[in-house]
């Protein structure tokens, strides 16, 4: 636990003592904010038009659902942006240690690989949590000016968090494979995109196979969260995915030791 905390603290401090954390959080907020603005202003226009029509025909104004029409697409957008930003956070976790040689310090200190992996993973997770909390300002605005349901927002954020942790776990794995940060980041994005897209092909293959593919789709499991449905099967999926990423990281580090890389 002590070792884990030492690694975790060092990583977290290193994020916030370099520009990387601020740049990533800033850009993530900026892009999410732009799309938030577009989606919300579009929603407001649709509402106003509907109101006008209702007045014209002397009908009661329709109830448009802000959760469905604004919050859900906003969450989906953020899940995509996270895919491109989180690898920028994870790429250095191991690659940099390999490049500068500090890995020799870690791997000759009485710290287990698992403690190191969990420490690094948790530091990335906390940084991501900060990112998500920063975006909650968008949601707070919606609550001030409208009456969305709270439930789907909370499950949506839980889904976003779990999805992001999956990115981070595999980002860590790809970082453990190479001393080149760019290679680590690009392979992470490619890998995650593959697990996104795996759900799309399910429409083109036999239903049995399609069902399997859909089960592995990273984003497929997110839909229910965004809709406000909390289903343990999705939670279990993400937790398994995360565990797999961390487990592979451990294997990769141990095998690099044997190969002398």
């Amino acid at each position: 636990m002590r070792n884990f905390m030492a690694i975790f603290n060092r990583e977290l401090k290193s994020y916030f003592s370099s520009p990387i954390a601020y740049v990533v959080i800033g850009l993530f907020l900026l892009i999410s904010g732009v799309f938030y603005y577009l989606i919300v202003s579009n929603f407001v226009q649709v509402c106003m038009r509907a109101d006008m029509q209702a007045q014209m025909y002397r009908m009661a104004p329709p109830k448009l659902n802000v959760n469905m029409m604004a919050i859900r697409p906003i969450l989906h957008n953020m899940s995509l942006f996270a895919l491109f930003f989180l690898p920028l956070i994870t790429m250095r976790l191991y690659s940099d240690e390999k490049k500068t040689g500090t890995i020799e310090l870690l791997m000759t200190s009485p710290v287990t690989n698992l403690q190191t992996i969990l420490g690094k993973f948790s530091a990335g997770a906390v940084l991501y949590l900060v990112m998500l909390l920063a975006t909650s300002i968008f949601m707070i605005l919606l609550f001030i000016f409208g009456k969305p349901e709270l439930g789907p927002v909370l499950t949506g954020y839980l889904g976003l968090f779990l999805l992001g942790l999956s990115y981070i776990a595999f980002g860590l794995f790809f970082s453990s494979l190479t001393d080149n940060q760019i290679v680590a980041a690009v392979s992470t994005v490619a890998f995650i995109l593959f697990f996104w897209a795996i759900g799309w092909v399910s429409g083109f293959v036999s239903p049995a196979l399609g069902g399997i593919f859909e089960n592995f789709s990273l984003i497929g499991h997110f839909d229910d969260f965004a809709k406000g449905v909390l289903d343990t099967k999705h939670i279990v999926f993400y937790l398994s995915f995360i565990t797999m990423g961390l487990f592979l990281s451990n294997i990769s580090i141990e095998s690099a030791r044997w190969r002398g890389k």
């Binding site: 060092r10 290193s14 003592s17 370099s18 500068t100 040689g101 500090t102 890995i103 020799e104 310090l105």
Partner: peptide, 9 residues
């Protein structure tokens, strides 16, 4: 080690 393992930042 040959290159001192230092966290430069």
């Amino acid at each position: 080690p040959e290159n001192p393992p230092l966290y430069q930042e």
